[in-house]
Amino acid sequence: MSEQVLTYREALRAGIEQALIDDDRVFLMGEDVGCYGGCYGVSKGLLERYGEHKIIDTPLCESGFVGVGVGAALGGMRPIIEVMTVNFSLLAMDQIVNSAATLRHMSGGQVNVPLVIRMACGAGLQLAAQHSHSWENFYAHIPGLKVLSPATHTDAKHMLIQALADPDPVVIFEHVMLLNTRGDVLENSEVSMEKALVRQQGTDVSLITYGGSLHKALSAAKQLKKLNISAEVLDLRCLRPLDTKAIVASVTKTHRAIIIDEAWLTGSLAGEISAIIMEQAFWHLDAPVKRLCTVEVPIPYPSHLEQAALPQVEQIVTAAQNIMVAR
């Protein structure tokens, strides 16, 4: 299969461009997506190529323009709404939770909301407490939404296209630390956006993760190999619905699980995944499930403190070593 090497940012842009070309109903709308080229440069050049009819700059009114996206989707369009970052999405939460997620069920199945909402997320750029959030779990809590976390370059491009083909609202999280990284982008991807993927096969311990933490888990797996520990890395990809089968299959094979999740520990997806393992794979476990999450503190500005708050490769390695001896 043919492939090209792109940055994550370019892969996202390639997905948006393909969607714009393939479907006349698609448009991109959000703060600074046009003239500025996107806060993180994702939509750079698109306004010039596709025009202001398709690339729409909005005022700063998250609830307003997300609600407009919901209405436009009801009216037959296929909007891609960029809410610059998850941090600002709280201002649009009413429209996402009370409108987009409810309308189909509440109307007895009469209407649906084919809307894609993209937002940057995560910490690591020293942007301090108000610009470093990981709230995938908030959205993954809501029936009626689908929640994606593309961690690879191929997924950055193709999950967006699949999300647009979906008849229901899909929220996509794009981790800021991935934007500048380069990677292979397959021209076609047949894998469903709702499937988790084993990124590294292993037999001793499952490292279950998503988004910005995938690469930390893969690095840890490499180091663990040198220590004769065979770690399997499971990339969840879709956080709602969770691919429960894949989680159970991996743990059934390895008998040990470490969940790496950049959210705060309390009420995290890591807790949810841990519960799934207890309910469905408890008798396969050789050790208690371990969660590696962000320290429960507003993310501080100085790099050393920020890094100390986030899950790190060394912690994963240590946790894996400990879980191997636990009985």
Binding site: F27, S63, G64, G67, V68, A72, G75, N98
Partner: peptide
């Protein structure tokens, strides 16, 4: 008839979006 919205003000952006869809199409 698109509801029946029970969040005060919540229907306003929705209406603007429906109008946008009409205009675009």
């Amino acid at each position: 008839f698109y509801g029946g919205n029970a969040i005060v003000g919540g229907g306003l952006p929705l209406a603007v979006g429906l109008a946008m869809a009409n205009k675009k199409q």
